[in-house]
Write a protein that binds this DNA or RNA. Structure first.
Length: 842
RNA sequence: GCCGAUGUGGCGAAAUGGCAGACGCAACGGACUUAAAAUCCGUUCCCGUGAAAACGGGGUAUGGGUUCGAAUCCCAUCAUCGGCACCA
């Protein structure tokens, strides 16, 4: 293991050499339309990685997996004649840098700068072909100025239900625009994490604990900034349709948004009414009681004198429950009677009204009709509190009717008796609508996005408060830069740390600044747009650059987006939402940001466990590159298995790939007496033999197809087969090596560049067109045909490729072995698949 | 509980209706070498017959089905991973 050990090939010299050349000559810089060297004749291809959070730990082997895949695609597409946009940047606002600042007293900007420079040098060492000229950092005021600017656009817009599009707020004709703005302030029950001293989005709470750090989270009402993402629920579901995303991710988003169709129905209580939402209006006759969420505003108005103490008591108890407790205690239903009764509109029956925490304020109308016979939760509740259960749906077959929640036939329901459930729903909804008792309605699980955080290290809001009212700053006042602070610690009271900057918050005599900051997701909601034009100080992105890189014939702008599944709902939903707002306002040309999405699988440690510090199974890319080189590292990451799959690291596997690359090297290079590498004398300008030509064309075809389908592992296998076929050859034809090096280039760019130079091939390898192949060289005159009997292989024979089915059949039946096996048997059928096989059925 | 994905040698995997295990790792044998490393060549799913070449049988989580033919399509079950989880 000593570093003195001779390298199987001198990657330690050639890799830094080529990285320096690429850097110096700006080989991978993609000019924008209108800039020098821009070639308008070429089509564009935008290939994007999910940019990393530059943590102190540096890169791990999971990061470069997706990055290598996109780098292969980027290099391949350039050779295919595309203008390729392939950028990289840093998502650098967020909790870890701030937590570290609290501990060490070092300003987050300082640690961020250090971490970025470490990440960048690690990425460069792997030889990625990023256009570093376009590098961005979400914590750079020149960047977050535009994050704040986009917030202004969101704040100054509303969704016009008539057009289902965002419009400037001035087109709103109502009295109070603050009620419809896409960014608004509201008192909401939030997820408050005392340990982190901040509120969290629903999406950031996992099993009642914070996703970052795993600290307990409690419900607490607070005044917060919200983004009206729910206004886009329908479009966020519908417009998934045109995207080339994995079905699973689309489903995850659909489920998260959670669309359900049903009806809203009004139940009368004296002179008031309660509106409920149900997906099963056909079960209205089975409603035997109602439940309101404990926090429902109507509770105060309807509760009777004698029930008041227990109702108050119950409400207090549920308010104190954390989310975790609410779900953990879900096994046992709880609730209390309000003393009030409502009238069921279909049969004028008087039914009791309860409150229970299994009904959520935030979904639907916060009130339900309970149909215990056909809803599991209602049934459980009814059984516990001895409420009546009435069957109104007859299940198909002999299923148990009580507790049946599927579709059947309506019974005990005069208006709809005998109708199948779907029809019954339609009929009763129409019946309700005619009488003004209810209407068709759609509900979404998706909640508005809680957009403020009580932290330091994030984008300040471009907002000031005056006389208790918020207003936005002018564009000219951007960026709003966070003030320097001695102490970043959360206050613990829910007041943001920025409130400690007494001078900074004082905006004018009358106005004070908003002290919340935006969540970490803000910066990543639009970074792909900034990459199109990252130095623009007049606009978040120029129209021209946006139109070019984010344009095209598809709904989504970025042609290929690669990253982990962990962002399936959060980042990808938020970014789509922002993009749609910008699209509606006319700032971007497509309604979706990402046309094609590919998820890379996570890489486990050698022990098949998730890599983690505590397990000590973390693989550091630097160590791998030190020992085997960047090309081997890249190729191994791709050779491990299908990109999307979860897979385990193996150092032995890296060695195998390193051996392959060394074989490529020695195919063309040999050592002289002095132990120096020089061009092998076997490399000559000779004609290819037929088998050589065949394998070259087969390899070209397979590598091309496999890159297109992201099957990088099998592309590498094929190149191994190619190399194995040439290792024994007496002479190595240059005419085979030249295209092969181009095929290898996206995978092992350093090695292939060096060999290209050593072979004195013309120009730069990066400027070569992708090799073509000719199908004619792939087909053989003769193919081997397998003879099966009853599906079992019994013999094989060579046949001309042109042989007819009849000829093949006769030839097969004439084979001595087949004659022998069939002589005393009846042949029932013979199946002939030309060029493949014959199956004789006995 | 619900939804989704996955399940193939000692290991990573390939084959997505037509010869299961390409390619790589590991192991074993051989060549080169004073020796080792490196390199090159060969063998390796299981069982049976055979000195061997070979031949026969079985085999893709489990059980069934469709088909001339199934790792691949369908049904059921099990296991692992991921997501959601009182959403009316």
């Amino acid at each position: 293991m000593s570093s003195e050990r001779r390298k199987p090939y001198p990657f330690d010299q050639i890799e830094p050499k080529w990285q320096a050349i690429w850097d110096e000559r700006q080989i991978f810089h993609a000019p924008n339309p209108g800039e020098k060297n821009f070639d308008a004749a070429k089509p564009k291809f935008y290939v994007l990685d999910m940019f990393p959070y530059p943590s102190g730990a540096g890169l791990h082997v999971g990061h470069p997996e997706g990055y290598t895949a996109t780098d292969i695609i980027a290099r391949y597409k350039r050779m295919r004649g595309f203008n390729v946009l392939h950028p990289m940047g840093w998502d650098a606002f967020g909790l870890p840098a701030e937590q570290y600042a609290i501990k060490s007293g070092q300003h987050p900007a300082v640690t961020t700068r250090e971490n970025v420079s470490k990440f960048k040098s690690q990425l460069k060492r792997i030889g990625f072909s990023y256009d570093w000229h376009r590098e961005i950092n979400t914590t750079d005021p020149r960047y977050f100025k535009w994050t704040q600017w986009i917030f202004l656009q969101i704040y100054n817009s509303w969704l016009n239900p008539k057009t289902n599009k965002a419009e400037p707020i001035k087109t709103y004709r109502g009295k109070n625009p603050d009620e419809v703005r896409l960014a608004y302030v509201a008192d909401v029950l939030v997820n408050w994490c005392p340990e982190l001293g901040t509120v969290l989005a629903n999406e950031e709470v996992v099993d009642g604990k914070s996703e970052v750090g795993g600290f307990p989270v409690v419900r607490r009402p607070m005044r917060q900034w919200m983004l009206r993402i729910t206004a886009y629920a329908e479009r966020l579901i519908d417009e998934l349709e045109g995207l080339d995303w994995p079905q699973g991710i689309k489903l995850l988003q659909r489920n998260w948004i959670g669309r359900s169709e049903g009806a809203e129905v009004d139940f009368k209580i004296d002179d008031k009414k309660i509106r409920i939402f149900t997906t099963r209006p056909d079960t209205l006759y089975g409603a035997t009681y109602m439940v309101l969420a404990p926090e429902h505003s109507l509770v105060d108005l309807i509760v009777t004198e004698e029930q008041w103490p227990s109702v108050r008591d119950y409400r207090e108890k549920t308010a104190r429950k954390s989310d975790l407790e609410r779900t953990e205690l879900a096994k046992e239903k709880t609730g209390v009677f309000t003393g009030a009764y409502a009238i069921n509109p279909v049969n004028d029956e008087k039914i009791p009204i309860w409150i229970a925490d299994y009904v959520l304020l935030g979904y639907g109308t916060g009130a339900i009709m309970a149909v215990p016979a056909h809803d599991e939760r209602d049934l459980e509740f009814a059984r516990k509190f001895n409420l009546p259960i009435r069957q109104v749906v007859q299940p198909p077959g002999d299923e148990e009717p009580i507790g049946f929640v599927g579709d059947g036939v309506a019974i005990n329901s005069p208006i709809i008796d005998g109708l199948p459930s779907r029809e019954a729903i339609r009929k009763i909804t129409a019946w309700l609508e005619e009488r003004g008792l209810g209407k068709r309605a759609i509900n979404y699980k998706l909640r508005d996005w809680l957009f403020s955080r009580q932290r330091y290290w994030g984008e300040p809001f471009p907002i000031v408060w005056e006389d208790g009212k918020h207003r936005v700053l002018d564009e000219s006042e951007l960026p709003v830069v966070p003030p320097p602070l001695e102490d970043y610690k959360p206050t613990g009271t829910g007041e943001p740390p920025l409130a400690k900057a007494k001078d900074w918050i004082r905006y004018s005599k009358k106005a004070v600044r908003e002290t919340n900051v935006m969540p970490q997701w803000a910066g990543s909601c639009w970074y792909y747009l900034r990459f199109c034009d990252s130095h623009n100080d007049k606009r978040f992105v120029s129209e021209k650059a946006e139109k070019y890189w984010m344009g095209g014939g598809k709904p989504g702008g970025v042609d290929l987006y690669v990253g982990g599944t962990e962002h399936a709902v959060l980042h990808l939903l938020y970014a789509r939402f922002w993009h749609k707002v910008l699209f509606d306002l006319g700032y971007v040309s497509k309604s979706e940001p990402f046309q094609r999405l590919v998820n890379q699988g996570i890489i486990l440690g050698e022990d098949n466990q998730k890599m983690s510090k505590s397990r000590g199974n973390i693989v550091n890319p630097d160590d791998v590159i030190e020992q085997y080189g960047a090309d081997a590292f890249r190729c191994y990451e791709m050779f491990m298995g299908p990109l999307e799959q979860m897979k385990s690291w193996s150092m032995r596997g890296v060695e195998g790939i390193a051996r392959f690359l060394a074989r490529v090297w020695r195919l063309m290079m040999s050592e002289n007496q002095a132990g120096q590498w020089e061009l092998s004398p076997a490399v000559q300008e000779v004609d290819l033999t037929n088998p050589q030509r065949k394998i070259l064309h087969a390899t070209t075809k397979k590598v091309t197809d496999d890159i297109e389908s992201f099957s990088f592992n099998t592309a590498i296998s094929q190149m191994m087969i190619f190399v194995n076929a040439f290792t024994t050859a007496q002479t190595i034809p240059i005419s085979a090596m030249q295209p092969f090096l181009v095929l290898l280039n996206p995978f092992a760019p350093h090695l292939s560049s060096e060999l290209w130079e050593k072979l004195k091939l013309p120009g730069q390898i990066t400027e070569q067109p992708w090799p073509g192949f000719d199908e004619r060289f792939l087909v053989e005159d003769e193919v081997e045909i397998v003879i099966q009997m009853n599906g079992k292989v019994r013999d094989r024979m060579k046949m001309s490729i042109q042989a007819s089915e009849e000829e093949i059949k006769n030839a097969a039946l004439a084979l001595p072995k087949i004659q022998e096996l069939t002589s005393d048997k009846q042949i029932r059928k013979v199946v002939v698949i030309p060029k493949k096989l014959v199956n004789i059925v006995l």
